[in-house]
Design a protein around this nucleic acid. Structure first.
Lengths: 97, 97
DNA sequence: TTGATAGGCAAGTCGCTACTTGCCTATCGT
DNA sequence: ACGATAGGCAAGTAGCGACTTGCCTATCAA
């Protein structure tokens, strides 16, 4: 669980995607895709972004809702909140790697 | 900078090390090593731990002080604090991947 | 000074992961 | 019905990252 969140956050592109979703929630795959390419000069394929979104979703950082042929992506900060305090208050470990 | 912190946090063993340092600050390499092996049944070599500590240090999460033939490791939570708020308040991106 | 302890350096192996390519399904407009 | 749009699945490739192995340096105790 925490494992998935940390691994999801490890990739720069995925963090960029989260940035995008903070700025505008509920974007489709193609929207995110074009945003990443145009705004930040990242050159990546649609599938690459799709796979990143899958990682973020299975980490719980992104939730999706389908409408027709569109799939919208929303940010979910709950997993983040649960993680951040881990080393800040002395001291309590929680997850099993 | 932020890149290094996220990558450092991506590994379970390194998170365990941080857990150890929260619990008892200023441990040596060998102390951390034995703790990891005995308390959590992790089977890893001294060099493995040493390399993990190097990653944590260059991410700024751990600071070291040398005394004679000992090198003590202390936790530094500053990089964490700087990172956590990134996606919590809507919205402002900050690092360049 | 010698041996033991604490740590560092460098090269090599292996597995995971990010990304691509190619093809397939589903929904919408006309 | 047709084509175009939005997305999914699967296999393959390449590079990075965790870990090992072997050897080397430095400090302390006897």
């Amino acid at each position: 669980m925490a494992e998935d969140v940390f691994k999801a956050l490890a990739d720069p592109t995925r963090r960029r995607i989260l940035d995008e979703l903070v700025e505008r929630d509920g974007q489709s795959l193609f929207e995110i895709c074009t945003r990443l390419v145009t705004k930040h000069g990242l050159g990546l394929s649609r599938q690459a972004v799709s796979q990143h979104l899958a990682v973020l979703e299975s980490a719980g950082l992104v939730v999706t809702r389908r409408e027709g042929r569109y799939k919208f992506h929303d940010l979910n900060t709950e997993p983040l909140k649960r993680i951040m305090t881990r080393w800040l208050r002395p001291g309590a470990p929680e997850d099993t790697p």
